[in-house]
Design a protein around this nucleic acid. Sequence first.
RNA 1: GUGGCUGUAGCUCAAUUGGUUAGAGCACCGGAUUGUGGUUCCGGGGGUUGCGGGUUCAAUUCCCGUCAGCCACCCCA
Length: 407
Amino acid sequence: MAHTTLPGFRDFYPEQFAERAYVTRAWREVARRYAFMEYDGPPLESLELYTAKSGDEIVGQLYNFVDKGGREVALRPEMTPTFARMVSARANSLRKPTRWFSIPQLFRYERQQKGRLREHYQLNVDIVGEAGVAADAELVACAIDICRELRLTSNEVVVRVSDRRVMHAYLAALGIPSGAFEVVLAVTDKLARQPRAVSAEKLAAAGLNESQVNAVLDITSATLDTVATAIVATSEPGGEHVEELRRFFEYVGTLVPDGAAWLQFDLSIVRGLAYYTGIVFELFDRSGEFRAICGGGRYDNLLGAIGGAALPALGFGMGDVVLTELLRARKLLPVTEPSVDYWLTADEDVPLTKIMAEAAQLRAQGFSVEYALRHQTPSKQRKSANAAGAHSIIHLTNAATAGSHAR
RNA sequence: GUGGCUGUAGCUCAAUUGGUUAGAGCACCGGAUUGUGGUUCCGGGGGUUGCGGGUUCAAUUCCCGUCAGCCACCCCA
């Protein structure tokens, strides 16, 4: 085998391309219903666009190189920097709230494993210029509707929702010093993947007492009511964010028929990215078999931080790899079979130009048409027609009589 | 980047304890056949057994390295 794909890259044969098209079609269709406009940017950007915000350590995860002009460049690992730049450049003239989506191919130089390649397609949906929770609800409703469009149900997928501000208020209510928040968030993020004893040890090392440690370890099961009660009881600020969260749940339940069934309040949702400021969420399959299929949240300070207009913003990303794996496992991917409207067969004394003329006429009417590109026996032609998935066969004879048969 | 498992045809798999020219089904190509569009039959192409070394009279089989895939870390999308 002379050539193969590079590690972590994929060939899309027609069968795989059909799967990808099925998913991207659902993305576009639902995004359109929610009135998002599609945009795109360059797949190659200057390295600085990514290091400026995240620091040099991110370079190890980037697909970067020096181009022939001596520029440090990188294949885009995420869409948000490009999006932020584009929005900032026209921030004053864009109608608010701005609702945009994109389906970029993203790249990351990492060791590949299940659900994680060096390249993937990711739907990015963002809203800019609206600080209220109705925007957060629209975003999550959109993500849920995409799942519904792909025939996933709340039995298979759950949306775990948290809020950075509520989390901070709750930790403060527990009496945990703000200096330990960073460690607590890191441990919380790994609760499901790390042995409980290890988490407990790290929390104790950060200075938490026993009851605080247990409260953090059980944070996944903390309901919005218990969290609200704890915050109110200690008169910690943050009560208004709890109320916002309640409205958020109500809005999503209204926007999606069975919206409430998809939602689950879960403070353990942290999201690695540091720039999130409010409600954050992730979509998981309930079996726990796969990685997160979608994640996002509010990042009100990011646009201002990169030197653009200080506008509130929020968004989510949904990759094709995990989503397609889930659909395949649930047998929700359409079976792809070849299909053509008409297949023209002909007796062997019929000139090829006559067949071509017939094909041209049908194609002009919008039908897909195939025929043998060289002389073959009628028997052989019929076999080819069947293999091509012909809906109808039209047989041409030299007497100019044509007959068609429903398949 | 670290560790574990696995590599035979496009796909799914064979090949006695190491032993002739590495086989089969499906798929593909060609030819017949089928009272007539999913039948059946015949034939064909396609593998330096991932790659490179080593042990041996002899390696798909045993050993080492390397590459790739899968899984778990790391990290995140």
